[in-house]
Design a protein around this nucleic acid. Structure first.
Length: 776
DNA sequence: GGTCCTACTTAGAACACAGCGG
DNA sequence: CCGCTGTGTTCTAAGTAGGACC
């Protein structure tokens, strides 16, 4: 499967988010229609069951109301939609074409000689031996904790001597894991081999502690509750709002919502029709009857004065004296100290988001049908507190009460509330990294360990991925349509690192898809394209409405299957009509315990990093050049996972700055060289100590400048290549940190060059345990 | 097997802030 | 010392996945 993870660079070339274009907007029209009747029934049922549940009545009623609203909306515009369906389709096509021509490109070759990252290759073949059928067909009934304990010995049998060292290290890890998982009594081989190192033993102790039975997340939890958004402060009298050119004094409520809009005036959002429509509708709900009758047209509203006022405010904040700034800082610190931590099982833990989201206008991503809606203020009465019974229960603000206080130790959240835009639940949870040191490893247990487990699952996949690949290739020939679809989808997930693609409620969110929810219109089949056979062209919006564009040559069988799946279907029909994520994941679970679609992303990301690092790192390079190699490996993963960002607004400028720095450095270098030359000539004539020394020091200067120049050029290359690629996400979520740690150790790169403070905290466990010969 | 709901992970943008060069 | 820039942090939206229920 060499070249499997190869991505067409054109994917990145494509414009990355379909923000304005109404490209995908009306796609679902007739789908919606088809589903409508069904949906209505569902809602009736839901209503019934909701109302019987008195305890949660509040929220469910609200939710229901919201649903009801959308339904009406849909219903009323149905005819209109149908009438325009064809036209819309045309429009979509046009816009699609337009959008793919406005390309942004990644430069291929750089003047300074640093070429772009090589294409991503698949993992090396020598892992093929993991595909032992025996291993994979064994019963999968053991408890989850034992996961990674009992596959190792089998691997050992097939390994060669060269790998002995690596193996030993892995075993040590494994046996550590086993100890933590004391239930496990297997694997004598590894135990024998293990030479316990004292310090590691000590380090390991904390993993051993506090193992809870299935599903229990904590025994004791105490916290101070959330911090609410500051109350609205009315604008000073002299800040005016104008309607139709005339000054108008708004009621406090209406004014507050108006300020939300005013604060966003410079943002593209406020030019979008949906945003304006949603905002205006919700704004009007907050108005007094008089305001409502006066303000009937958003275009006649003039927020500019308000907007200017806020800009002046931010400016003033910047200009504040040191003392004032310090005061604010202190206050934040105090808040953090008081509310930013909780006690979980005797350990103080940092909370991620202890502040309740303030009210504002909903900023959905991409073409979100609800953008601009009013995110209402969350009150204590909306809040569910979760803590242990025997803890000091946080008191609600004076004059208020909590919606509920519960003591559920099967979940990790401390506070939750239901948000009014989608009706979904929001949580306050712990920070992914615990800054607390040594003794306080509990959050590492919750988060760090979970993270660790994630990578261990991916490593287990490594061992059976060949078997799984053979399996799905077999399944392409299956008699059952369902099996074929499943196999082709899995192939995409594996090869292209696509997301699973859960179904989404239509009309509630932006129209985005993942693998299982791909529609016929999202792929194009080319029997031949640019000299390649069987090319599939993908073009769809994925998570966060980030565009995925890629042309991939696939195997003939896949191609033929796709043709089959697309037969007699409309563009807006599901490509995999017999498949969904739950069917797929059930199947994956049968192939390997704990395997789900997203594990493939983790696996392919990590294996790609490891393989790219091997390939790209030049032992003779200096540290900056090695780091460039690391970033390139990281970039390869980001491209694979389609992690894109909007090019920074200041990108061109900063690139130019850097270039002029480089030019200046070049000149400096030329000068230094000239000086060296003349010093040399001088020394030849004079032949005394002094001039010799001068030559030496000039030589050194040249060297130094060369190095500086090189560093700048590396930086420029790195930045250019990174223009619209986001490295952070893969680094944080997909790459087994032990690979990076091992790489740093191997090449003597300080870990700080790769991970910043937060990242080091999050990956403390990996920094602790990975040796330089760690193999993913 | 579908639907709904919940819990938790992954995601890019916005924001804050430190450090650097003028 | 001050503004600017790049980086790190915060924010919260948008996914995945699994379980309950029918």
């Amino acid at each position: 499967m060499s070249g499997d993870q190869l991505h067409n660079d054109s994917q990145i070339e494509a414009d990355f988010r379909a923000n304005d274009s109404h490209k995908h907007k009306d796609k679902h029209k007739d789908r919606e229609h088809r589903h409508k009747e069904h949906k209505k029934d569902k809602e009736k049922d839901r209503e019934k069951s909701k109302h019987s549940n008195s305890e949660h009545k509040d929220s469910s009623e609200k939710k229901h109301k919201d649903k009801e609203k959308t339904k009406h909306k849909d219903g009323s515009s149905e005819k209109h939609k149908d009438k325009h369906k064809d036209k819309d389709k045309e429009k979509r096509k046009e816009e699609k074409m337009k959008s793919s021509s406005g390309d942004i490109k990644i430069k291929k070759e750089k003047e300074n000689g640093f070429s772009s990252p090589p294409r991503i290759k698949d993992e090396p073949d020598d892992d093929g031996f993991y595909a032992s059928p025996k291993e994979d067909s064994k019963p999968l009934k053991r408890p989850r904790e034992d996961d990674d304990a009992d596959y190792k010995p089998k691997k050992i049998k097939t390994e060669d001597i060269k790998k002995a060292k690596k193996r030993k290290q892995e075993e040590e890890e494994d046996s550590k894991a086993k100890k933590a998982k004391s239930k496990d009594k297997k694997v004598p081989e590894a135990d024998k081999r293990k030479k316990p190192k004292k310090e590691e033993e000590q380090k390991w102790k904390w993993w051993e502690e506090e193992r809870y039975p299935e599903g229990i997340k904590w025994k004791f939890l105490e916290h101070k509750g959330p911090v609410f958004a500051p109350p609205y402060e009315p604008l000073p009298e002299n800040v005016k709002f104008y309607y139709d050119g005339k000054v108008m004094k708004l009621s406090t409520k209406a004014e507050e919502v108006a300020t939300f809009f005013a604060k966003m005036l410079d943002h593209e959002y406020t030019t979008k029709e949906i945003f304006r429509k949603n905002f205006f509708k919700d704004w009007r709900k907050e108005m007094t009857p008089e305001e409502k009758s006066t303000i009937t047209n958003l275009s006649k509203c003039d927020f500019t004065h308000m907007s200017q006022y806020f800009k002046a405010q931010t400016e003033a904040r910047k200009q504040m004296s040191k003392e004032e700034k310090q005061k604010i800082k202190d206050e934040n610190e105090r808040l953090l100290k008081e509310y930013g931590y909780c006690v979980m099982d005797n350990h103080k833990e940092r909370i991620a988001n202890f502040k309740i989201e303030p009210p504002g206008l909903f900023r959905g991503r991409g073409n979100h049908p609800k953008m601009g809606m009013l995110k209402r203020r969350i009150m204590p009465e909306d809040i569910i507190i979760n803590c242990s019974k025997d803890s000091k229960i946080p008191p609600p603000p004076p004059g208020h009460k909590w919606k509920e206080v519960r003591h559920d130790n099967k979940v990790t959240w401390l506070v939750s509330w239901t948000e009014n835009i989608q009706g979904s639940i929001k949580y306050i949870m712990l920070n992914p990294s615990s800054r607390i040191k040594v003794r306080i490893y509990l959050s590492s247990m919750l988060q760090g360990e979970k993270d660790w487990q994630k990578y261990e699952t991916a490593r287990r996949l490594k061992k059976c991925v060949d078997k799984i690949r053979n399996q799905y290739r077999e399944d392409w020939k299956s008699k059952e349509m369902k099996v074929r679809q499943r196999a082709v989808a899995l192939y995409f997930i594996d090869k292209l690192a696509l997301r699973a693609g859960n179904e989404k409620e239509e009309g509630e969110t932006a129209d985005t898809v993942g693998c299982c929810s791909l529609r016929v219109e999202h792929i194009k089949l080319h029997p031949e394209l640019d000299g390649q056979e069987y090319v599939v062209e993908f073009d769809f919006l994925g998570k966060d409405s980030i565009r995925y564009y890629n042309k991939v040559p696939v195997e003939k069988r896949v191609f033929k299957n796709l043709q089959l799946f697309m037969e007699n279907k409309q563009p807006e029909d599901d490509l995999f009509d017999r498949l969904n994520t739950s069917i797929l994941n059930k199947h994956l679970q049968d192939l390997m315990e704990g395997l789900t679609a997203k594990v493939f992303r983790t696996y392919n990301a990590s294996i790609t990093l490891q393989q790219q690092l091997k390939e790209l790192t030049n032992p003779d390079d200096n540290i900056p050049a090695k780091i460039l190699s690391y970033n390139r490996a990281n970039r390869a993963v980001a491209i694979l996972c389609n992690h894109q960002r909007a090019p920074p607004k200041t990108f061109e400028k900063s690139m130019m700055n850097l270039q002029s720095k480089i030019d200046a450095k070049k000149e400096q270098l030329a000068d230094a060289r000239r000086e060296l030359k003349s010093a040399k000539a001088d020394a030849k004539v004079r032949r005394d100590e002094k001039s010799k020394k001068s030559v030496e020091s000039k030589k050194k200067a040249v060297q130094r400048i060369e190095e500086q120049l090189m560093k700048l050029e590396v930086q420029a290359t790195d930045r250019e290549e990174n223009k619209q690629i986001a490295l952070g996400t893969s680094k944080l979520n997909y790459l087994d940190p032990r690979i990076s740690v091992a790489w740093c150790k191997k090449w003597g790169i300080p870990i700080e060059k790769i991970y910043n403070k937060t990242q080091r905290e999050k990956f403390a466990w990996a920094i602790d345990m990975a040796e330089e010969d760690y193999e993913f």
